[in-house]
Amino acid sequence: MKKRRLHNLFIFLVFSFLFLPIIILVIYSFNSSSMNTLFEHFTLDWYKNLFNNRDLIDAFTNTLLVASVSTIISTIIGTISAYGLYKYNFPLKNLVNWLIYIPIVIPEIVLGISLLSIYTLMKLELSLFTIILAHICFSIPFVIVSVRSTLSKEISVLEEAAKDLGANNYIIFRKIILPIIYPAMISGATLAFTLSLDDVVISYFTAGPGSNTLPLYIYSMIKTGITPDVNALTTLMILLVFTILISITIYQSHKIRKAII
């Protein structure tokens, strides 16, 4: 019994550690002091302020834009590539199979500077586009890995069967493969979206004028003392994320229960 309590305490401590800074940010979004120092008294002013802070809102929408566009594109490319790599043989296959792991393992800073260098070489103007391209670059491999995990030998049996029944490649992909890999595709997309929202290093090197994203905006403010409207934005973001995740979880457990019954 005692051991059990100790166990629960440990789990609790790990989660407190993970959530502590976020909880603090949320609490301080209601603090009247503008320096984020000691808690003075309760206020909602920062939430009002937030909607007048055009730069912060811009940075936030840019971040969402980068994350959504890069997620969509990398999910599409990642999914068809995973299937392509699984199904076909082609001359550069070994090289490609090796290259796709590089963005996963090399330090982000190396990926960031190598993209910056190649952009400079190609005289590509740094903008939202270059950030999106960079995010696509590090997201695709994660989608491929996620989707590929569901493509197994049994699938080729299904494919053969469908072919015997006269289905063409498109029908096979659309009606057999896609439904099977769909969950993996979604989890790959979720991962890509999350990594994009979380990224600091690669955005830092690939951003240009007028393409302020949240991490860059915050980086330029972090030492000057972030004003609490950033906390307010964080609070709203967390709220949103929590709602989405909880509804997904409820939906899933509902489905599982249904399946059991």
């Binding site: 993970l18 959530f19 502590l20 800074p21 976020i22 603090i24 940010l25 301080y28 984020n36 971040t63 999350t194 990594l195 929202l197 979380d198 990224d199 600091v200 949240l214 991490p215 915050i218 980086y219 972090i222 972030i226 950033v230 964080t234 973001m237 967390i238 994320v241 929590f242 995740l245």
Partner: peptide, 18 residues
């Protein structure tokens, strides 16, 4: 995974306050 969905820079900033 949830902490990931806010930018890591923001969370690092939370640590300054702490």
């Amino acid at each position: 995974m949830i902490p990931f969905l806010t930018n890591s820079l923001i969370r690092t900033y939370g640590w300054i306050i702490l």
